[in-house]
C-alpha cells in the first residue's frame, strides 16, 4: 500500500510517497499562483518519477497553506502535525523540530510516541522566515542559495536591530551604503533571524535531539548562527524541505 503526502507551501509545493517504512520518493516544484494546479503537477510528477500508478495510491493527505485547495486529497492536515510525523518517521529519536519555511517558522515539541505535544509559530510577521532571507538576498544582490557560504566568511557580524523585515531591509541598505562587508551583513542577518527562532523554541521548552526542517535548513550560515544561539547541535534531516510532505504521507497511512 502506497500513501501520498502533498505539501503546498507559500514558495514551493512538495510531494512524497511512502510504502511501509520506506520512502519511495519526493519532488519539489515552485508553488506558482494556483495551489491546486501546483498540487496536481507535483503529484503527477512524482507518479512519473517513482513509476507509481495513481490507482496504487491508497490515501492522500494534503498540508501547508494551500492544503484546503488540494481537492483530490482524502484529508487536509496542518503542517505542524505533518512536520511532527515526518521527523519521527525519518528519526524516531527526535523530540523537537525547528521548521523554517517560506512564510512561517515554528518550533514543535514531540512526545515519545511522536505525537505533537506543543508548538509555537511566528505571528503576523515574516521576520525569521524564508521570505525574510529572500528580501535580504535581493537587497544584497545575491541569490538565496549564496547567503550561507557568504556568511561563513564573516569576521565581525553586523548588528541588525530591526525585527521587522521591511525595516531590517532598510537597515541593510544603509549598511551597504556605509560600505560594510557583505559577508558581515549577511552573518548579522542570520544572527537576527536565529535570535527570533530560538525564542520560539524556548517558549515551548524544546528538548533535544532537535531536527531542523523546512527550506531554510539548506542555509549553512543560518544553521551555524542558530546552533550558537541554542547552545546545542541540530540534527539535519536528509530532506528538510520535503519533511512536511513525508509527514503527510505518514498520516495518510493512518487514515
Amino acid at each position: 500500500m502506497i500513501y501520498a503526502g502533498i505539501d503546498i507551501g507559500s514558495i514551493t509545493a512538495k510531494a512524497a510517497f511512502i510504502k511501509g517504512n520506506k520512502l519511495l520518493g519526493t519532488r519539489v516544484i515552485p508553488s506558482g499562483y494556483n495551489p491546486l494546479n501546483a498540487g496536481i503537477k507535483v503529484f503527477k510528477g512524482l507518479l512519473k518519477k517513482t513509476k507509481v500508478l495513481k490507482s496504487d495510491i491508497t490515501a492522500i493527505v494534503s498540508t501547508g497553506y494551500g492544503r484546503a485547495s488540494v481537492d483530490f486529497a482524502d484529508k487536509a492536515m496542518t503542517e505542524i502535525i505533518c512536520h511532527g510525523a515526518g521527523a519521527f518517521f525519518m528519526n524516531p529519536e527526535i523530540r523537537g523540530i525547528i521548521d523554517v519555511g517560506g512564510q512561517d517558522s515554528k518550533a514543535i515539541l514531540l512526545d515519545r510516541k511522536g505525537h505533537v505535544d506543543n508548538f509555537a509559530m511566528n505571528d503576523k510577521c515574516a521576520a525569521g522566515t524564508g521570505r525574510f532571507f529572500e528580501v535580504m538576498a535581493n537587497a544584497l544582490g545575491l541569490k538565496l542559495n549564496q547567503l550561507g557560504d557568504f556568511s561563513l566568511k564573516a569576521d565581525k557580524p553586523s548588528k541588525i536591530s530591526s525585527i521587522c523585515t521591511v525595516f531590517a531591509e532598510s537597515e541593510v541598505i544603509s549598511m551597504i551604503a556605509g560600505q560594510e562587508k557583505r559577508e558581515n551583513i549577511i552573518a548579522g542577518i542570520h544572527e537576527s533571524a536565529a535570535a527570533r527562532i530560538s525564542s520560539l523554541s524556548s517558549k515551548i521548552g524544546i528538548k533535544e535531539p532537535v531536527m531542523m526542517t523546512g527550506g531554510v535548513a539548506k542555509n549553512k550560515g543560518f544553521l551555524k548562527a542558530l546552533e550558537n544561539r541554542l547552545g546545542f547541535e541540530l540534527i539535519m534531516g536528509n530532506l528538510p524541505q520535503e519533511n512536511g510532505a513525508i509527514g503527510a504521507a505518514v498520516l495518510a497511512s493512518r487514515l
Binding site: T78, I81, H115, V116, D117, K124
Partner: peptide
C-alpha cells in the same frame, strides 16, 4: 494573537492553522 475590536491585529488564515493544529493535538490526546 488578535484583538477584541481592531481586526487589523487579526489574521484569519494564521489563526485557522493554529486552531486546526491545536485540535489535532486535542484529538490525538
Amino acid at each position: 494573537e488578535a484583538d477584541m475590536v481592531d481586526p487589523r491585529n487579526f489574521s484569519k488564515s494564521q489563526v485557522e492553522t493554529r486552531i486546526d493544529a491545536f485540535m489535532e493535538i486535542v484529538k490525538q490526546r
